[in-house]
Nucleic acid binder design. Structure first.
Lengths: 254, 254
DNA sequence: TAGTGGTCTAGACCACCTC
DNA sequence: AGGTGGTCTAGACCACTAC
């Protein structure tokens, strides 16, 4: 048993009390001054302890209000059905999923011509910095910032199509592409996680202690890569899933 | 332009210098005292700035040594091939993947009888706290803690089989199950991310600023769920991927 | 032993929110 | 106005690493 520093004891004590619902999600912790008295520690030390829990994503703080215990409700995104033409949908795949969950989706949208960043160029098999069409979405669920999505199309595909025009494509881009004779027959998904960059923290309104989940989907026709979509989620609000193989046993009882 | 607090200016200045390779990965930053002079700030303020970068996972600190810029090399795990009987492997799927990448895998292993935790019970469709066989792995790559893996088997399946015995199953559990007449024909994968619990931080030796990636795979026979595997990765060292549909265009050129 | 980060204190002033 | 967290300081002592 090694001696714990005082600020860790503070963090552990509060963590236990959050776990056992002494402080349920959504409620506020005692003020720094109260905790300082309780633990016989300076305010700075109490702050260090609270900061541990903020960094773990257990609580948040706001000036003038106090520390609040986070409540997290996660949204499930079925990646293997997403954009799959075998599952009929209306409009874009994202709105469909969110509405289906009884939530209200909204988004801001813009289209740009952009030189391909190296990671995108590699996946689309085009030259780095060659022109691509970037369709960018900033998405909200019930007005809470939820995710950003950037889809890059190579210029050889997008040129002269509605993909270069600002404004939505009502039937969904996957269907629109199919109607142009470019069918997405397979995709390669990459998933990783990291702490948000300052830019991401701003767009997703996440504080310290909340990682982001990055989902990079490269879509292929039978010939070559046709687009690359990078979606960045708030890690605390999202879970992804894949259904693979024969799941009749699962779906039978569900 | 709102005025930034001093500790953020410190963080930003150092972040820029890390980005532009003034301090390349693996090198050390100047000491707190040096930075304190440079930024005309107290040591505490410099520490606050450095802490921002630690929390973002950009740098690490160790007592007596200083602050080091992290270098990250990620390992790609192909989840859609993993455990798939169509792709021949020797031994367990994990070691195969790691060796294939030219790295050296090692692991510690144990088998326990455990009451099913609620999340597992639900996925296996057994009563909460009913008995399960837990096969637990703590995995290392080149002696760096990499991931933990806990696989739960319902007792109706595991009883009287080698699954309940400590010790490896040379041909791999997926094959062994198949030889028992229980074939895994599909699986449901769930992926999420969060900051590590203290227990996970200990096992994976991650400090602040590194999220974990959790991968929960529930395997199904044609009849019912047969096992549930929860893998917890260091988020900074791992990326998962899925190949779905027809990727002949991708694999042709790769 | 010298230099590094780790912990802790006591107190100051500011910014934000609620009443 | 009063309470909350946010920032910052100056200084103390401890623990670890290197030489």
């Amino acid at each position: 048993m090694s001696k714990q520093p005082k600020y860790r004891l503070v963090a552990e004590a509060l963590r236990r009390e959050i776990d056992d619902l002494t402080y349920p999600p959504g409620t506020r912790l005692p003020s720094e001054n109260d905790l300082s008295t309780r633990f016989d520690a300076s305010r700075n030390t109490v702050r260090a302890g609270l900061n541990v829990l903020v960094t773990e994503g257990l609580i948040t703080s706001s000036q003038g209000l106090g520390y609040e215990v986070r409540s997290n409700e996660v949204f499930e995104l079925n990646a293997s059905r997403f954009e799959n033409l075998d599952f009929p949908q209306q409009g874009d795949a994202y709105s469909t999923d969110v509405k289906h969950a009884g939530r209200r989706p909204s988004q801001t949208f813009r289209v740009e011509m952009q030189p391909a960043p190296p990671a995108i160029a590699e996946r689309l098999r085009v030259e780095t910095a060659s022109t691509t069409v970037l369709r960018f979405c900033h998405r909200f669920v019930d007005d809470v910032p939820w995710s950003t999505q950037a889809t890059y199309y190579p210029i050889w595909l997008a040129e002269g199509t509605r993909l270069t025009e600002p404004g939505d494509i009502a039937e969904g881009t996957t269907r629109y592409l199919a109607s142009l004779g470019v069918e997405q027959v397979g995709y390669f998904d990459e998933i990783d996680t990291r702490m948000p960059t300052p830019e991401e923290a701003r767009l997703l309104e996440v504080g310290a202690g909340v990682p982001v989940l990055t989902w990079t989907r490269t879509g292929y026709s039978t010939e070559k890569p046709i687009r690359c979509t990078v979606t960045t989620f708030r890690g605390d609000l999202n879970r992804m899933n894949y259904e693979i193989g024969d799941l009749s046993a699962r779906n039978a009882k569900a």
